[in-house]
């Protein structure tokens, strides 16, 4: 059962009027304009034992992504495809609002929006993950770990997911005579086959202002949020209204335009981070 949130921080609501005064002057409290994301840092290969990993900082929000790849059985209706599973943990150390326990509706929604936005445009080539059709395939477990919460989990999580997927390496394995797949501790140099890159852009609507990449205070005072996923060609590959309020058609049109420009900023940062990753790898050798 989904219940109206009752653990709401009250201070940002009291400050709402002063935030609105800033917006009327075209400013935000952290001196950004309405359409720019916060400072972003993307690190990859931050963990040795995972097949792929990343740590993304979007302002003060921190999300770690870890990828484990294991042999498993394909789904009955897709015998010639590997399996991608996305999960998100709102780890209690990230915020006083996060409680220990099984995934709540917020973490399930986050994981499912990321999952759909990767799955529908076929971002990961699941057909390349077959070991023996109908019998053994690779299962990619993508776990998103929210470590510090200052708003906009969707965009940070998608950047972390993409950075980890793009730098992950398949395990080395051998097929035993029994047919079992034994993976060795070594990780191969083979990447996961990725068809396209995806980013999400979150906007908050505060009265009639649309703010890209809201921080936590901005999320709390917002009427509602939109998450729009884009591929590099500018197609919309996923979307979700999240939060209590509503939007007019004109507002949605505006959100799509604003978000599609912001998506280009995210793609640039993601690509830059991956380029420097390649350089570092070469430098090591």
């Amino acid at each position: 059962m989904s219940t109206t949130p009752f653990r709401v921080q009250i201070i940002p609501k009291i400050k709402k009027e002063s935030y609105l005064n800033l917006y009327r002057k075209g400013q935000r409290a952290d001196e950004r304009d309405f359409y720019s994301p916060r400072k972003i840092s993307i690190q990859t290969n931050v963990l040795e034992k995972a097949n792929g990993s990343s740590l993304v900082k979007l302002g003060n929000t921190q999300v770690m992504a870890g990828i484990k790849i294991e042999p498993g059985e394909p789904f009955f209706d897709t015998p010639d495809q590997g399996v991608l599973q996305v999960h998100a943990e709102l780890v209690p150390l990230a915020s006083p609002q996060f409680e220990p326990g099984p995934p709540d509706e917020n973490s399930i929604e986050l994981a499912r929006v990321i999952d759909r936005s990767l799955r529908d445009p076929k971002a990961v080539d699941l057909n390349s993950l077959v070991i023996r059709p109908g019998d053994k395939v690779w299962m990619i477990w993508l776990d998103l770990y929210i470590l510090d919460y200052d708003g906009n989990l969707f965009d940070a999580s998608m950047l972390a997911a993409m950075a980890a997927l793009l730098t992950a390496k398949m395990p080395e394995y051998e097929e035993l005579e029994t047919g079992e797949i034994k993976i060795s501790k070594n990780i191969s140099n083979n990447p996961i086959k990725i068809n396209k890159k995806v980013v999400t852009v979150t906007t908050a609507k505060v009265e009639n202002y649309i703010l890209v990449d809201p921080n936590l205070d901005e999320e709390i005072i917002s009427d509602t949020k939109s998450v729009i996923a884009f591929d590099e060609q500018g197609n919309i590959v996923g979307a979700q209204k999240t939060g209590m309020g509503s939007l007019s058609q004109e507002e949605i049109d505006n959100i799509i335009n604003v978000s599609s420009s912001a998506a280009q900023v995210y793609f640039k940062l993601l690509n830059d981070a991956l380029k420097s990753e390649v350089k570092e790898e070469k430098g090591d050798k």
């Binding site: 759909r116 529908d120 445009p121 591929d231 500018g234 197609n235 919309i236 590959v237 996923g238 979307a239 979700q240 209204k241 509503s246 939007l247 007019s248 058609q249 949605i252 049109d253 799509i256 335009n257 599609s260």
Partner: peptide, 29 residues
């Protein structure tokens, strides 16, 4: 809620161009 001119839920599962996205909402309304 057409009487308020407000959209209270939208989700997208799949791929649409920006134009299709706009037209889809128009059609739904």
């Amino acid at each position: 809620a057409p009487d308020l001119g407000q959209i209270t839920l939208y989700q997208l599962n799949g791929v649409l161009s920006k134009e299709e996205f706009h037209n889809a909402i128009d059609m739904a309304m």
